[in-house]
Write a protein that binds this DNA or RNA. Structure first.
Length: 274
DNA sequence: CGTTACCTGAAA
DNA sequence: TTTCAGGTAACG
């Protein structure tokens, strides 16, 4: 579910209400999502490791959220259906998919909920980080055009598969890869190395603009995604091809089609994207 | 490289 | 009943 715009929106909405707050207690309703110092499902170690610590800040790298604690780092990946929602209402009953609750000293709490149970919370110390984070590439706002071109075109794989590869560029997922390729007029199956300078340049600018727009609208919600305060995002109205198969292309009036690229579903306009 | 597994639930 | 879903890691 959440790609860079959704994760950034969670970060931006959550940080103001939790920064500087001490974690008073933790409720683990299901420990499957916890990785404590490399040990999967260690709820007790997790509780001991976070209780009493102050949340110093909330950062994002790619699609990862990083809670800076006093002496450790809490890394969260929401994967497909995860959400981190702040609540000040102690009477609000947690959903059946709420797996972990961080209770703050001031009465607020942060709930980790995740229907499909793919999301993870890693507690790390000594500067170590989860495997996926160590190999993460820069996000599209952290590199210039030349750097983007070098990374993306260094592969013979379909350009969409390259955009989705978090080691090449981080933060782009299935929604925004389709949207950016449409905006740049590039077919998702094109081998990445075959992009001309002009095409790769258009793609760089399209990715940044598509992500910027999505952030400005609080991310895209189809069903599960919520920001840090439990609100859905408003970016679905801006989508031009993603989940629009069968509809008309805004540019040429052709039909948006669905195909398979790199193991994922891709949507595109065959008339406009070459 | 592409394919599969990991899960649950909604929709076809 | 089958297929599909915003992601990633482990396969072969």
């Amino acid at each position: 579910m959440p790609e860079l715009p959704e994760v950034e929106t969670v970060r931006a909405t959550l940080e103001p209400v939790i920064k500087g707050k001490r974690i008073a207690g933790v409720s683990v309703r299901s420990s499957h999502c916890l990785v404590t110092y490399g040990r999967e499902g260690d709820a007790q170690g997790f509780c001991e490791g976070v209780c009493g610590r102050v949340i110093r800040g909330l950062a994002r790298r790619g699609k990862y959220l990083l809670f800076g604690l006093d002496d450790s780092l809490l890394v969260v990946h929401l994967r497909m259906t995860g959400a981190l929602v702040y609540s000040q209402d102690p009477a609000a009953v947690p959903s059946r998919h709420t797996h972990v609750i961080l209770r703050l000293e001031d009465g607020g709490e942060v709930r980790f909920q995740d229907q499909r149970r793919f999301g993870r919370l890693w507690l790390e110390r000594d500067g170590s980080v989860p495997q996926g984070l160590t190999k993460l590439g820069p996000d599209p706002f952290e590199i210039d055009e030349a750097g983007f071109l070098l990374r993306v075109r260094a592969s013979r794989r379909p350009v969409k598969a390259v955009l989705l590869d978090q080691e090449v560029v981080s933060g782009v997922g299935n929604i925004y890869a389709d949207e950016a390729l449409y905006a740049a007029g590039i077919h998702p199956s094109r081998p990445a190395f075959s992009l001309a300078d002009e095409e790769a340049s258009r793609l760089y600018r399209a990715v940044r603009e598509i992500l910027r727009l999505a952030i400005a609208h609080g991310g895209t919600t189809f069903s599960d995604y919520r920001d840090g305060l439990g609100r859905p995002g408003g970016n679905a109205a801006n989508l031009t091809v993603y989940r629009q198969e069968g509809g008309r292309c805004r540019r040429c009036g052709g039909i948006i089609v669905r195909l398979r690229v790199g193991g994922r579903t891709a949507r595109c306009c065959p008339g406009c994207q070459t």
